[in-house]
Simulated scan of single mutants.
Amino acid sequence: MGSDASEVYRRYLSAVMLHGQASARAVDLGATDLYALNILELTGPMTPGELGTRSGLTTGPTTRLIDRLADAGYVRRVPVPGDRRKVLVELVGTSAEFDEMLAPARRRIGEIIGSYTPEQREVLFDYFIRAADAYRDATEDLRTE
């Protein structure tokens, strides 16, 4: 597969990123806004600093991101029990619009995954888990350089 494998993979990543951007635009959000909502959905409430770190933003842009999402009704700031100085950002909910917008891609990807044997799906999901860890580690490496 050689360089062809690299090209195929890069095309795949580009398609995923382009879909994320188009999805965000379809619900009048920026790509980073949609990404932040995904982070909160996957990990639960977190401090603004944690959300900024996970989304790759500095303090100012993180504050503006949270303000936009709060104004749109997607998140809220809640005080941390026992420490009035700290707040957590928590997901209030996502609209039915999100589910409707993502349904076609989810259906298509579900059909593709469903076409594999159970053994092939096991390898595929093993890859997803290991690749996500590798990308997180590589991201940390870039941040510390």
Rank of each mutant, 00 (worst) to 15 (best):
R77P: 04
L124I: 12
V16T: 12
P61L: 04
V78N: 03
P79F: 02
G114H: 01
A26S: 14
V87A: 02
A24N: 13
R77H: 10
L124S: 09
R121W: 12
S95T: 15
L102F: 11
F125E: 10
I66A: 01
A26K: 10
A24Y: 12
V92T: 15
P118A: 13
S95V: 08
S23C: 12
V78G: 06
G110A: 06
P45T: 04
T62W: 06
G30N: 07
V27L: 01
M46L: 12
R121Q: 15
R108L: 14
Q21H: 07
R108P: 04
E119H: 06
Q120Y: 03
R121T: 13
V123F: 05
R77I: 04
G93W: 09
G114C: 04
K86R: 15
P79Q: 09
A26W: 02
T47C: 14
I109L: 10
A105F: 09
D71C: 11
M46T: 03
E97Q: 11
V89S: 01
F98L: 14
P104S: 12
V27Y: 00
V80P: 05
E122Y: 02
E97P: 04
H19A: 14
K86S: 11
A24K: 09
I112W: 06
L57N: 04
I112P: 00
I66Q: 01
L40M: 06
D99M: 05
T94Q: 10
R54N: 09
T43V: 15
V16C: 11
R121I: 07
G56P: 07
G52Q: 07
L69W: 02
Q21L: 07
D99Y: 06
R68G: 07
L13Q: 14
I66S: 02
K86H: 14
G93E: 13
V27C: 00
G60C: 05
G52E: 11
P118R: 11
I112T: 13
L42K: 08
G30F: 01
E122T: 03
D83Y: 08
V75Y: 00
D67N: 15
D28T: 05
P81I: 01
D99L: 07
M46H: 03
P104D: 13
E41D: 07
V78D: 14
R85I: 02
V92I: 13
L37E: 05
Y35L: 14
T62Q: 05
R85H: 12
V75L: 02
L18Y: 04
L37M: 13
R107T: 15
P81T: 05
L29W: 05
M17P: 01
A72F: 04
E100G: 12
L34V: 09
L18C: 02
E100C: 09
R25Y: 07
E122W: 01
G52D: 07
G56R: 08
V89W: 00
R77V: 04
E90Y: 05
P81F: 00
A103I: 03
L65Y: 02
D71R: 15
R25W: 09
G93H: 11
A70H: 08
E41R: 12
Q120T: 10
G93D: 08
D28P: 00
R68M: 04
D83L: 10
S115F: 06
E111S: 09
G30Q: 07
S115L: 02
D33P: 01
D99S: 12
V78T: 15
P48S: 06
M46P: 06
Q21Y: 04
A96N: 10
L18A: 08
L34S: 03
